[in-house]
Nucleic acid binder design. Structure first.
Lengths: 116, 116
DNA sequence: GGCACCTGCTAAGATTTGTTGGCAGGAGCA
DNA sequence: TGCTCCTGCCAACAAATCTTAGCAGGTGCC
């Protein structure tokens, strides 16, 4: 995942996903090694319910992916792994991305700065 | 401002500051040219009160700086400009930064999983 | 004085996020 | 059957964020 693949809206989503201590640690943990929910929760010392919420947010931002697998002993395990990403944030890239923000920006797109 | 200058806690603050459409546009606008509050609010079509809140957040995250200046005609103007930053976010850098997160992490550093 | 700029503040409401606890289902194993 | 492990979901509360409206102050100019 690269900055040039993203729209401004997607970027805010990705940044929001990363702007939380828990989620940052989750990404780090999953980046070290793929892991399943219950074990990850144990290693990070947080509740499973909480972890799932954070994982869902990370996944919907596209930072991690999940695979439901069945272990040898028949247990269902949901494995998460990190999506390789390289986000190079600079004033320059922000300028470019800000142009693609659609939230509450449509009006001024129509006028650009002309009338008023 | 560089990733290697930041702790994990500071990073979450910076990312939180950037993970908002308004603030992303503010950073972009200020990166194009330094500007003062009222004019910036007009150009972005948002209220001054709202803009000030966002600017304060960006400044406390270290992404912009402000200077109170007095124009030729004696008006006080608060100019904002962007702080050059280069944040290269990758799974690798996240792993490193996650280790420096202190929020609600002290306990487990002390116990690791022992008592409680 | 009245108007047009500039700045700052705060209170209050609406909305979103974070977190917990509980309940459900399924599989294997003694 | 009972215990342990895995998964998922939902209700509900607490806490943080976002946004607006309104107040205050200052300057210069007609």
């Amino acid at each position: 995942m690269n900055l040039s693949d993203l729209t401004g809206d997607e970027l805010t989503k990705v940044l929001a996903a990363l702007s939380n201590p828990h989620r940052l640690r989750v990404v780090a943990a999953v980046a070290r090694e793929r892991n399943y929910v219950s074990r990850l929760a144990r290693e990070l010392h947080i509740s499973r319910a909480l972890l799932q919420v954070h994982l869902r947010k990370l996944e919907s931002a596209g930072l991690v992916t999940s695979t439901l697998e069945v272990s040898e002993d028949g247990k269902a395990m949901k494995y998460y792994e990190v999506v390789p990403f390289a986000l190079d944030l600079t004033p320059r890239s922000v300028i470019r991305l800000a142009e693609t923000i659609t939230v509450a920006t449509e009006e001024e797109a129509g006028q650009a700065k002309g009338e008023r």
